[in-house]
Design a protein around this nucleic acid. Sequence first.
DNA 1: ATTATAATAAACACAGTGTTGGATTACAAC
DNA 2: GTTGTAATCCAACACTGTGTTTATTATAAT
Lengths: 191, 191
Amino acid sequence: MKSQKIDRRVKYTKLTLKDSLIDLLKVKSIDKITITELCETADINRSTFYAHYKDQHDLMQQIEQELLADLKQYLESYTFQGYEAESFQMIVSIFEYIVANAELCKVLLGPNGDIALQKEVMMLVQRQSFKEIHYNAKISEEMLEYYIIFAVNGSIGLIQKWLQEGMKKTAKEMAEIVTKAVFKGLSAYVG
Amino acid sequence: MKSQKIDRRVKYTKLTLKDSLIDLLKVKSIDKITITELCETADINRSTFYAHYKDQHDLMQQIEQELLADLKQYLESYTFQGYEAESFQMIVSIFEYIVANAELCKVLLGPNGDIALQKEVMMLVQRQSFKEIHYNAKISEEMLEYYIIFAVNGSIGLIQKWLQEGMKKTAKEMAEIVTKAVFKGLSAYVG
DNA sequence: ATTATAATAAACACAGTGTTGGATTACAAC
DNA sequence: GTTGTAATCCAACACTGTGTTTATTATAAT
């Protein structure tokens, strides 16, 4: 079942359009990027764009979905067979993935990125991490739900700050900050 | 020092434009709202709009700044002279304010709202709350900065979930969830 | 009632959209 | 290499929205 060969021209068209969109997203948000502008940057005819995508958002979503699929595959390559350390290791891996794909992640997770994607990524992790907690602890289903929301949004904030500052801290250091915050809150720091 | 009287016509124009924008924001994001559409909804001539505002974002920002100023004034009316309970009371007040201004807040803090505003609001609170912690605890300036980011973003997530669900919980209940999460993290629930 | 000015209506050039039909070119397959 | 296929390009189209200007009308302030 080998995927049928794709015409080189199509491959090229899609690639430059994606690259050009990423470049433009470094400067402005998706809503302010016009298709005309995008096509001029990519040196692709506008009607060719419409042959492949509905609009800017369509193209951006495809880029996002590719990233998400790639990340999932990357995470699955790890077994994560530790018990307590499981969530920590997973969070480290996420940060490592972001480092390895810095250019793209910086755009998609940055201020011009899509929040929906960011939540999708972190939800993936946290739900996995909290799965067993639910059965072991005295926390109700409802409260767990609330806390996951809190933890996911907080973690996204940290990732964004980290990216803004140029990823000076290592993946492991960031993972430690995140897990500490998630599990112990401010009490981790106040004697 | 009484503010010079404003022409009733101007007052009306600005009011309907604001109301109309709020209505439209219930349905679509600011970038998808055209000025033509907004003026038709408000039954205001398009050139009149340009006499007062630069574009949609300009109008929206003015609405946001008014809300923020109003909230600040509201918070200042409280003295907040408790010590430990200070931050808790302040958070309760925030939630009470949102309940009292539900229609507007639902839009501005909701999915079509401006994240920048939301962060501005919560930053205001958290910085205030954490001011003394810095001197009492063994937390470094840097770590505090990180944790504030985490807590602010987490809290915003909780507010959004609360609004989405129709604000079923009381302001006090929500404030308890937030403070618990901020101060103790998951350890509040896991024996 | 008079005066000042805000709002309106109509028109303008301009930019971007989404779609079309036909010419051109590059490709894969044989 | 030749050839049929199809992807790309090009030019044109009607349409929507923008931002600005002008003269006219309506209304507020005094």
